[in-house]
Write a protein that binds this DNA or RNA. Sequence first.
DNA 1: AAAGAATTCAACCGCTCCAAC
DNA 2: CGTTGGAGCGGTTGAATTCTT
Length: 295
Amino acid sequence: MDVNGRTCSSATTQSDEEMDLRRGPWTDQEDLILINYITTHGEGRWNSLARHAGLKRTGKSCRLRWLNYLRPDVRRGNITLQEQLLILELHSRWGNRWSKIAQHLPGRTDNEIKNYWRTRVQKHAKQLQCDVNSKQFKDTMRDLWIPRLVERIQAAATASSSASANFTINNNVAAGGPVLPTSNNHNLGFVQVNPSFTPENSSTGGSSDSLGTQVSTISDLTIDYYNFPATNTNGFQSGSAQVSYPDCLTSPISDFNHGLDIQAFEQNSNNNNNVWLGGGDVSENLWNAEDIWFY
DNA sequence: AAAGAATTCAACCGCTCCAAC
DNA sequence: CGTTGGAGCGGTTGAATTCTT
């Protein structure tokens, strides 16, 4: 990255400090300085950190750069299907509480999730000509996207024998039919999370939401059942004992070979393949199945 | 190949919250 | 109590990149 960041050097009436403050893209050198300083001294107070490190940046800027980009545990690359599923679920529950949602996706930042939502999800809301907060859109998300995601995650998990991850999905039919919420199963609408989860490495705990329930980080997430409504507002008949998803969703979109799909994605991806959850990179996302919108 | 449109995402801004004084 | 400063959050911007014509 060889970008000359914008500076505030033209302002003669401002203080020297303000004049020297850099803005815009970070250079490699700045990154290095910040990384070295934090490695040596820890995070501390961001404003004084910026000064002591010799960075002509605001503390805010340093914090953002560190948290969103330089932190060693930041995951980069495409949002996986599992992550998409979790984002959809958690957003339906918490709305635009990006940082809260990010707490449950290890290595993902609130900024990244927010960008994902705005660029991908809102785009499709626009295509549907409805507001992202509208009932129509929420219904579509709940009744189409989430089942679709679950299906694809399941297919990917089946295809991948190396699934060392504890991400398991049991189709509701196999499990004996739709599962109603119980006091023992925190039902997030459609994805149920393991109530025994304890947020082991979550610094923020993630258990202080207003509903008083715990949501696992995705690495600990076990989808016990997939639960879909008996009817939905789009007129699909679902929830019968014979099908695990609305029939209309099993074809023709589902005709594609999931394995090939994933391979194709991996071949096309120039990003670092974040092999996560032990199942290979299944980042190929549902948005590629654009024809889902014609339903 | 070039131009314009669309998309992505790093970074900034303004606001709120909270602890220290 | 009120004030102040730092941290963190969600919303927004705009440069860079990718796609389409």
